[in-house]
Simulated scan of single mutants.
Amino acid sequence: MAMLSPKFDDLTIGHDFLFKKVMRNPRICKHLLEEVLQAPIAEISYPEIEKTIDVFYDSRGVRLDVIVADEKHTHYNLEMQVKNTTNPKTGQHVLPKRTRYYQAMLDVDALQKGQNFDLLPATYIIFICAFDFFGKGNYIYTFKKRCLETSELEFPDETTIILLNTTGTHGNISPDIKSFFDYVNQHTVTSDFTKQIDKEIFHIKSDQKARLEYMSLETYVQDNRYEAYAEGEAKGLAKGVAQGLAEGEAKGLAKGVAQGLAEGEANEKFATVKRMLRRGKSSLAEIAEDTELPLDTIKRIQAEMQAV
C-alpha cells in the first residue's frame, strides 16, 4: 500500500502543492527570479499555473508547475524537485531528459500555427533541486548551447536551463538565495525574504479554501488507491483460495493464496496506472516509480488503453 500523503499542516515549501501556492505571490516569485538571474525584472505575469500541454491526441502531455512571463515576453518555468528520480528499468536519472521535454513542449505551445520560428520567446527552465545532481557542490548549474570547437561561441536560440542545488557548498549566489536554500532544506527563517515566504505559507495554511482544495485532491487520490487495492486484493485472494482448494493440499492452498495475493497486488497497480494515465498528471517514469512497475509495463498499459 502506498504511503499516505502529508497532512496539510505538515506541508513544506518542498511539496508540489505548497510550492505552486507560494509562487503565486508575484512579489515572492519575481524576487526569486531576480536573485537567481542576478538581473532586475520590471514585472511578471502568470500565463497559466500548473499548465498541462498536450500536443497530439496520442502523445504524452507534460505538467508544468509554474509558468511566468516578464515584460520582455521571456518565459520562466519554475519546478520544485525534491527527489532525484530514476527510471526503475534502466536505472538512469530522468531529470536531464525531463528538462529537454519541458523545453520542447514550451516551444510547441508558444508558437501558434503559421507563426515564424523567430517569434519564439526566450525561455528559462529552472529546477529547484533538494539534491546535487552532478555532485560538484555548485549552488547553481547553468546550461546554454555552446560550440565544441569554439567554446566562446554560443548558439543564440535563447534557451537556458538552470539547476539550483539547495545542498550546494560553493558558487556565486546572493544572501537571499542562500537563505532560500536553507529554508527549503531546514525550514529555517534567516532573512527578510524567507520571512516573507514563511508568512505566505502561514496565510495559505490559514486559508480554509486552500485546505479544502488540498484535502479534496488527496481524498480523490487516496480513494482511487484504496479502490484499486481492495478490488485487486479481493479478486486475487478469491482466485488463490479457489486454486488452493482445488489442489486439495495445504501446500497447494498456500501456493494458491500467495499467487492470488500477488495477482491482486498486480491488479491494484494496473488499476492505479490506468487512473494516473487518464489524469495525465504524471510522466510514465513517475508512474513507474510510484507503482514499482517496469516502464515497459506502463507503456504496454498505455498502448492498450489507446487501442480501445
Rank of each mutant, 00 (worst) to 15 (best):
M1T: 12
M1D: 14
A2R: 12
M3R: 15
L4P: 04
S5I: 01
D10H: 11
H15L: 05
K20W: 02
M23G: 02
P26H: 08
K30M: 01
V36I: 15
L37S: 02
A39Q: 12
A42K: 10
I44Q: 02
P47H: 05
I49C: 08
I49N: 13
E50Y: 00
E50G: 07
K51G: 03
T52F: 03
V62W: 01
V66K: 00
V66R: 00
D70E: 04
D70M: 05
E71P: 01
K72F: 08
H73P: 04
H73E: 14
H73A: 09
K83H: 12
K83T: 07
T85V: 14
N87C: 09
T90C: 04
Q92P: 00
V94S: 02
K97D: 05
K97F: 06
K97M: 09
Y101F: 15
Y102D: 01
V108L: 15
V108F: 09
A110L: 05
A110M: 05
Q112K: 15
K113T: 11
K113H: 08
N116D: 13
F117I: 10
D118V: 06
D118Q: 08
A122R: 14
T123S: 09
I125R: 01
I128L: 09
Y139L: 04
T142D: 11
F143K: 08
K145W: 09
K145S: 12
K145G: 08
R146L: 07
E149Q: 15
E152A: 13
E154M: 14
E154T: 10
F155E: 07
P156V: 08
D157C: 10
T159K: 15
T159R: 14
T167Y: 00
T167Q: 08
G168C: 06
G168V: 09
F181L: 05
V189L: 01
T190D: 12
D198E: 13
D207L: 07
Q208K: 13
Q208I: 10
Q208T: 13
L212A: 11
Y214H: 10
Y214G: 08
Y220C: 10
Y220I: 07
Y226S: 11
E227I: 02
Y229T: 07
E231V: 04
E233D: 07
K235I: 01
L237A: 05
G240P: 02
V241D: 00
Q243A: 09
L245H: 04
E247H: 09
G248L: 01
E249A: 13
E249C: 10
A250D: 09
Q259W: 06
A266T: 06
A266N: 11
E268H: 13
E268I: 04
T272A: 09
V273K: 05
R278V: 12
R279F: 11
E289A: 08
D290P: 00
E292A: 12
L295F: 06
T297L: 14
K299R: 15
K299M: 13
R300A: 14
R300L: 14
Q306C: 08
A307R: 15
